[in-house]
């Protein structure tokens, strides 16, 4: 998405909103771009649940079994609390950030 985060054209020609003070983009364009993409490194952790569950070739087998459950089933069930944990960590680490 290169280019999408670039600065925008000057908007001063636009009509003002009725009854509302005009607000502008922050002057720090790179800061704005960073905010737009939520480029906090902590957010990258959110990729873990995706990688862990979207490649079935990795867990599409019966062994090792756990209490009678084939690996395919208990692995994916266990991925649920795992994903909760990751999301919670990111939530905590980025709390209050916009």
């Amino acid at each position: 998405m290169a280019g999408t985060t670039a600065d925008r054209p000057d908007r001063s020609g636009r009509p003002d909103r009725s009854g509302r003070p005009e607000r502008r983009e922050p002057d720090d364009v790179r800061g704005a771009a960073r905010r737009r993409l939520n480029a906090n490194p902590w957010n990258l952790l959110l990729l873990i649940p995706l990688v862990a569950t979207l490649f079935p070739a990795f867990y599409n087998r019966t062994g090792p079994e756990l209490a009678g459950w084939p690996f395919f089933y208990w692995y994916q069930m266990l991925a649920i609390p795992g994903s909760v944990l990751v999301t919670l960590v990111v939530y905590r680490a980025t709390r209050g950030e916009r």
Binding site: N43, L46, L47, I48, P49, L50, T53, L54, P56, F72, Y73, Q76, M77, A79, I80, S83, V86, T87, V90, Y91
Partner: peptide, 15 residues
């Protein structure tokens, strides 16, 4: 069982 990975990945994606 696809419903399980489906409802795992959706939340990190829309977070």
């Amino acid at each position: 069982f696809f419903a399980v990975p489906y409802t795992i990945v959706v939340y990190p994606m829309v977070f």
